[in-house]
Amino acid sequence: MRPSGRAPDAIRSVSIEPGFSYHAEGSVLIRMGRTEVLCAASVESRVPPFMRGQGLGWVTAEYGMLPRATHSRGEREAARGKQSGRTQEIQRLIGRSLRAVVDRKAMGEMSITVDCDVLNADGGTRCAAITGAWVALSLAFNTLVAKRVMATVPLTGQVAGISCGLTDLGAVLDLDYAEDRNAHADANFVLTETGGIVEIQATAEQAPFSEAQLHELMRLARLGTGTLFEAQRAAISGALAKVASR
């Protein structure tokens, strides 16, 4: 029995609440079990210096955790004066994942930064951040279309992240913290709704795992992201319907 009582191929309860941040052009609070991440997309009418004059937009992300998002208080990175390697790795992953499904030429020279702040961490924070960040980004694009800043939403697809792992029970989907810390191997999959692979991070914590086991993890990841894609679409439809009814 998994600690949560879930079946091996079951993900945690998922909710995506749009409009959580009042000032952001697009925002959501995503909950996956007890993991909660606030994703807020902010628009700027300029691009970084290295991109000026290319006619391309830029999408990036920043990631952080509140000091008491975990079981014991963590020191604020701002107090240390620098980000940890883990933080830098995760925010680069989120940025890459979002850019994989954006037509940056259709954006024009503007930037969108999606801030992903972990309020409560119980495993899978980077995957929840990617899944929620895509919705926040989509809502920001819809805001720009409504304001006639751009003609169409320059998204080429959906992207979401999900974790999988090998435990004493075999391959399981969407690990929470209790499972993740004892897993024989853990993996994060970033996939698109058309079946594309953006990134796979897979690591053996004990003995090496087989190619067949990796394929089983991929099968589970596709099941999990299928549910997440549906949740993303429902969140956007609900948010746009609410705006239209005003």
Score class of each variant (00 low, 15 high):
2 R>T: 12
3 P>G: 08
4 S>A: 14
5 G>H: 09
7 A>P: 01
17 E>W: 00
19 G>S: 07
21 S>F: 12
23 H>F: 13
28 V>L: 10
29 L>W: 01
35 T>N: 01
35 T>C: 03
36 E>A: 15
41 A>L: 09
46 R>L: 06
47 V>D: 03
48 P>Y: 01
54 Q>P: 00
56 L>S: 01
61 A>R: 00
61 A>Q: 03
63 Y>S: 04
63 Y>E: 13
64 G>A: 14
66 L>I: 13
66 L>N: 02
67 P>W: 11
69 A>N: 00
70 T>Q: 05
75 E>S: 13
76 R>S: 14
76 R>N: 10
78 A>N: 12
78 A>M: 05
79 A>G: 09
86 R>K: 12
86 R>I: 11
88 Q>T: 14
89 E>P: 05
90 I>G: 05
91 Q>A: 07
93 L>Y: 01
93 L>I: 15
99 R>T: 12
99 R>F: 06
100 A>Y: 07
102 V>N: 04
105 K>M: 08
109 E>V: 14
111 S>L: 03
111 S>W: 00
115 D>I: 08
119 L>W: 01
120 N>K: 13
122 D>T: 07
122 D>I: 13
125 T>H: 01
127 C>M: 14
131 T>A: 10
137 L>D: 03
139 L>S: 11
141 F>D: 09
141 F>G: 07
142 N>Y: 08
143 T>P: 00
144 L>K: 01
147 K>G: 09
149 V>M: 12
154 P>V: 08
159 V>K: 02
161 G>E: 06
163 S>V: 11
166 L>H: 06
166 L>V: 14
167 T>Y: 01
175 L>N: 05
180 D>H: 03
183 A>L: 05
183 A>M: 04
185 A>F: 06
186 D>G: 03
187 A>F: 08
187 A>N: 09
188 N>S: 13
190 V>K: 02
192 T>F: 02
198 V>F: 03
204 A>K: 03
206 Q>E: 11
209 F>E: 12
209 F>S: 10
211 E>N: 05
212 A>Q: 13
215 H>W: 02
216 E>V: 10
218 M>H: 09
220 L>Q: 10
220 L>F: 12
222 R>H: 08
222 R>T: 13
224 G>N: 05
224 G>F: 04
229 F>V: 14
230 E>M: 10
230 E>K: 08
233 R>Y: 02
237 S>P: 00
241 A>W: 05
242 K>I: 11
243 V>N: 04
244 A>G: 09
245 S>E: 11
